[in-house]
Design a protein around this nucleic acid. Sequence first.
DNA 1: GGCCAGGAGGCCT
DNA 2: AGGCCTCATGGC
Length: 259
Amino acid sequence: MSSVKIDNDFDLRKIAESGQCFRWNPVGGGGYRIQAKDRMLTICPTGQGLYEVSEWDAFWENYFDLSTGYAEIRAGISEDDPYLRAAAQAGEGIRILRQDPWETLITFIISQRKSIPAIKGCVEKLCRAAGRKLSEGYYAFPTKDELAALSTEDLRACGLGYRAKYIAAVAGSSTDVDEMRTLDDEQLLKELMLLPGVGVKVASCTMLFGFHRLNLFPEDVWINRVLEEHYPDGFPFERYAPYCGVMQQYLFYYRRMYH
DNA sequence: GGCCAGGAGGCCT
DNA sequence: AGGCCTCATGGC
């Protein structure tokens, strides 16, 4: 166990409830056990911006996106948008995690028409079925080859339903998700949407949470409510570029938590 | 407490 | 515009 200091814009609970990650589990005291790719971390707040961590290295520094200045991004919010200002204030501490693109893609294909607990359950079953065992009860997120080795029946046993054929097709395809890093936003969205089971929503989430494309603005039922209620003329995307995705996270969190 | 029905953080045809 | 797999949720 060691201790790290993360003294601004870092709220574990808000990140956990922001809908971007599905392998975070509370361990009490405001702490979480976090699994990502083939890594696992237990992190617990001890006050004054200090956190007790089970391990700490460049992987986690990068994962938590600690180098991005969210206060500066919030400072760009227009004074004549009180709703977004309130949302950003409520959401202070949310960061857009730098998750693995492959893991993010598969997770959000699974997410369609599922509740958060159901998504978490499916992902965990999938890791158990195909992921490398890290320690007793803990499994890495399966690689593309590991997923491809599963039959469609194995996938269905993870509770994937009609999504099983999407996962099987993506895992069995020649597409290398990591190689898409070099594409610009427009090209990347187009390429992702060519994959089976990937529409604009899943592609947008994969880009924002897996490729760290901070301008993507995934529109789900919660965001659609916000748009209907507060932006009758549409969201001002030009004004908030290239950080529309950060604004989306604040709006999502605020609408879901407080209304 | 258990059972059932409508809906869920979409995509495809 | 409908169907799709499954599951958590809420009403009875």
